[in-house]
Simulated scan of single mutants.
Amino acid sequence: MRKLIWGTSIVVVLGIIAAIIFTPKSDPTDFDYASLPVLGQTDAPVKIVEFGDFKCPACQYFSQQVKPQLEKEYIDTGKAAMYFMDFLIIGPDSETAALAAHSVFHQNNDAFWKYYDALYKNQPDEKLNWATPDYLLQLAKDNKIDVDYDKMKTDIEDKTYIKEVDKGSSTARKANVQSTPTLFINGKEYKGDFSNYGQLKEAIDKALAADKAE
Rank of each mutant, 00 (worst) to 15 (best):
R173W: 01
D193F: 11
I48Y: 00
Y33H: 03
K163S: 14
L36H: 00
F87P: 00
I75W: 02
I21R: 05
I185M: 10
I90D: 08
W130S: 02
K212T: 15
E189P: 01
D117R: 12
S63C: 07
Y83V: 01
V13K: 05
A172P: 08
V177D: 06
A118L: 11
T182Q: 04
S63D: 13
A19W: 14
D93H: 07
Q65R: 12
L136N: 10
D148M: 06
A175M: 07
I204T: 09
E214L: 13
S103Q: 06
S179M: 09
G192D: 13
D150G: 10
A100K: 07
K3C: 01
H106D: 03
Y116S: 03
V177E: 02
A34Y: 03
Q65A: 15
D134T: 11
Y149D: 10
N108M: 09
Q138T: 10
Q123N: 04
A111K: 05
E50L: 09
D43T: 12
T182M: 05
I185L: 15
L208N: 05
K141Y: 04
Q199Y: 13
T96C: 01
F54G: 05
Q107A: 02
K206H: 11
Y190W: 09
K153H: 02
E73A: 10
L4D: 08
N122M: 12
D110T: 13
L39T: 02
A97P: 04
A209S: 14
A210N: 12
K151H: 07
I156L: 04
L139C: 08
T42M: 06
T42W: 00
G7I: 05
K79F: 08
K153N: 03
E202R: 13
H102L: 13
W130L: 07
K114G: 06
D110W: 08
W6L: 15
K3W: 15
Y149R: 06
R173A: 12
W113N: 03
